[in-house]
Design a binder for these strands. Structure first.
Ligand SMILES: [Zn+2]
Ligand SMILES: [Zn+2]
Length: 492
DNA sequence: AGGTACGTCGCG
DNA sequence: CGCGACGTACCT
């Protein structure tokens, strides 16, 4: 009876009872994102027009406790047999709908719309039918199914899934990633054996690497023939491998050595074949590694003009900056939506790294102007611009963007533009919704705790479970504070 | 049409 | 700062 427990927490004064009807004509508090014009600080003290608690309770009962509604819909097996108790036990299978809604699908698949009409469900069905997995599917599909499998396959194939899911219902039990201790142990075991297998592969990989270093005219994936660079990038690749070891071992099992060897190249297609919950790590980290390698090679380009050129592209016409951005982005999206997203996903984890790199690689820019342009970028991208402002932000994780593509020369213009935009930004507090990063621990959590205030109050709260709240979204979406704005303005 | 969840507000 | 509420963007 959770709904009786929470009672004393915050009992609203009786004035709130039965005042919902007043809502339309009282100076009810308006959400900032309300499209309706907000009067200037409308009567702060107007009677709160909130739903009566009684109704709230009712909704809470409806809410149930453990899983989201959609998830509940998909409750199968035992749970469905014992009607009325499906919030207690059972293999809770998240429907595609709910998963997608929660971003579980989209986490690795880029824009959600790209999933529409995909063969995903078919793949899943196939895989469900035959535990033997289809390895022939392409990268993205495989990654999608990774997510999918972690949800569905264990459910149908793993007799322990019930236990696992049930464990997951109880918060703070077990590891955040592994929902049950036994499961974790098993996975650990699994992983160890895989590591052993991987060790040999890594050796081979090292051989290949050294070969690549030796062969100067190597037409291989590393495009740059510059010797020092090759060494450097190889070094970095190797350093990446230190992390790859763990994360790719899981893939080795089913996709042979192709992955590890391919990972030397840029256009790796880590054909991840889901195995168990540990795949979560793989699915997340693989793109990251991919990007790591990419970015390292990019970063250590012997000719820094390459970077500058890239920067320059966006700066040629500062006025067209937005258009440029959108252009590039849409092109990318059309071209390779998923890859793009993968990179961005990786960028999420590489943010600090790349940021630091950019700072170092752009000698013409001091840190201050870097941050300035960075913030300006944020401003611009988060302002009202109807086109893809949200994409800009969200696809970079919404937290830290790679510092702006502007050069010092354009700073004055940008400041001017900043001045123009600032009022708008301040006026329009409403911003495009960001999306969960999909990679943090809370994001990886699949099941609502059912006990936090958000879970208990979802109908009115409209908030995701606290334990599932993305850490990126918890951060200030707009790290530019008033004083920072002041700094900017004094900047000009 | 309906669900989920982000952004934002008022309040304590 | 956290909570509760609400508007609404985004998705199926
Ligand atoms: Zn919760
Ligand atoms: Zn997250």
């Amino acid at each position: 009876m959770p709904h009786t427990v929470k009672r004393p927490k915050k009992v609203q004064p009786p004035r709130k009872q039965n005042v919902k009807k007043l809502k339309s004509f009282t100076g009810k508090r308006r959400a900032g994102n309300s499209s309706n014009p907000r009067g200037p600080t409308i009567c702060k003290r107007q009677p709160v027009t909130r739903k009566p608690k009684a109704k709230k309770r009712a909704t809470r009962v409806i809410q149930g406790r453990a899983i989201s509604k959609d998830t509940k819909k998909a409750v199968t097996g035992r749970a469905s047999k014992t009607n009325n108790t499906f919030n207690v036990l059972g293999s809770i299978r998240c429907t595609r709908s709910s998963q997608t809604q929660n971003g579980l699908f989209a986490e690795l698949a880029g824009r959600r719309r790209s999933l529409r009409g995909s063969q995903l469900s078919q793949i899943v069905l196939q895989e469900v039918k035959s535990p033997r997995r289809v390895v022939t599917k392409k990268t993205i599909k495989a990654q999608e199914t990774t997510e999918q499998d972690t949800m569905k396959n264990p459910d149908l194939c793993d007799p322990k899934s019930d236990v696992r899911q049930d464990e997951a219902l109880v918060p703070n039990r077990g590891h955040p990633t592994f929902n049950s201790v036994s499961d974790e142990a098993k996975v650990e075991e699994d992983r160890e054996s895989l590591v052993l297998n991987a060790a040999t592969v890594v050796e081979e990989k090292a051989e290949v690497t050294s070969e690549m270093v030796e062969s100067e005219n190597n037409p291989g994936p590393i495009q740059n023939t510059d010797q020092p660079h090759t060494e450097l990038s190889d070094l970095l690749v190797n350093s990446c491998d230190s992390t790859v070891n763990v994360d790719f071992v899981c893939t080795l099992n089913t996709s042979d050595l192709t992955v590890s060897t391919l990972s030397q190249s840029h256009d790796i297609d880590p054909q991840i074949t889901p195995k168990d919950s540990s795949q979560l790590d793989v699915s997340v980290v693989s793109p990251v590694n991919e990007l790591l390698q990419e970015s390292t090679t990019l970063q250590h380009t012997p000719d820094p003009t390459q970077v500058v050129d890239r920067e320059h592209q966006c700066t040629l016409d500062p006025k067209a900056k937005d258009v440029n951005d959108a252009d590039v982005k849409t092109k990318d999206a059309n071209d390779n939506d998923d890859e793009m997203y993968n990179k961005n996903e990786g960028a999420l984890s590489l943010l600090s790294l790349s940021a630091g790199f950019y700072c170092n690689s752009l000698p013409g820019l001091d840190c201050e102007s870097q941050t300035a342009t960075y913030f300006l970028n944020k401003l611009l991208s988060s302002s009202e611009s109807t086109q893809s402002s949200f994409d800009n932000e969200s696809e970079t994780g919404g937290s830290v963007l790679a510092p702006g593509p502007e050069e010092a020369g354009a700073s004055s213009f940008l400041e001017a533009e900043l001045h123009q935009r600032l009022p708008q930004v301040q006026q329009r507090r409403e911003r495009k919704k960001r999306r969960r990063c999909g990679a943090c621990v809370p994001c990886l959590r699949k099941i609502n705790c059912g006990q936090c205030s958000c879970c208990l109050n979802r109908k009115t709260g409209h908030q995701i479970c606290k334990l599932r709240k993305c850490v990126e979204l918890k951060k200030r979406p707009f790290p530019i504070s008033a004083e920072e704005v002041g700094h900017f303005t004094s900047f000009a």
